[in-house]
Amino acid sequence: MDQVILISMAVLGGIALISAIILYMASKKFSVSEDARILEIDAVLPQANCGGCGKAGCHDFAASCVSASEKEFCKLNCPVGGQSVMNKIASILGYAAVKQERTVSVLRCNGTCENAPAKIMYDGVSSCRIANHISSGLSGCPNGCLRLGDCVKACPFDALHIDKKTGIPVVDESKCTSCGACVRICPRQLFEIRPYGSNGQRVYVACRNTQKGALARKNCKAACIACGKCSKICSDISIDNNLSYIPSTIDASQYGEDLVKSCPTGAIVLTTENTNEQY
């Protein structure tokens, strides 16, 4: 009986030894050498894998950082990690750190329950993308927020919430990393990534309705009617297809208040540092 145990131990031990040798040789022969810096950068990155940088994930971003020349490196940015992470990556690669501007997502619609009252009752699937197919929405505005919160579900950082009073989503600036998930999911392209601005001041047209003024106003009190008053204050503001657009290059601290005052419908919004606190 003892002999059986001894023989089986010897045989199994032998098989294990041979397999170990084969595995060792295979791992040597087929090993993939990767730039050590990629792993190093990968470790610094936030690992959110959100795709905000435009790459397939954090590892992919690390790989493209390593393969980029110094010139190309300036264009790469991890919006989630921000300046501190980019500084670390730059020091790993031995490049000079580039100053990255903080950006944040803004909702270009002010179709709140009050501004754009509901005309129909929707009790279908609670998804903006599906509702967008079926109908122009509760208020009838074909370009406005559908208030069903696909963006809230898509946000990987919990930075978007539907405000119960207004019905439309609110961006929590402290959490928003401008990864762009909301920009991609919104069926009406209402989100835009804009620079955070000095002291959190941003000025933008919170409307995307391209209908003629009278029609747009029928559905929403705060619709842009393309009257052109804002473009008289600042010539960089373009009015195209019945809709005004304020480019992010316009200095909000200089023109912001004038622009808000000039807008007869209240479609222009100026944020301040305290905007978030009111919610």
Binding site: I120, I134, S135, S136, G137, G140, P142, Q211, L215
Partner: peptide
Amino acid sequence: IEGGSGYL
């Protein structure tokens, strides 16, 4: 003008 779905 608005059709059945509310779109123009």
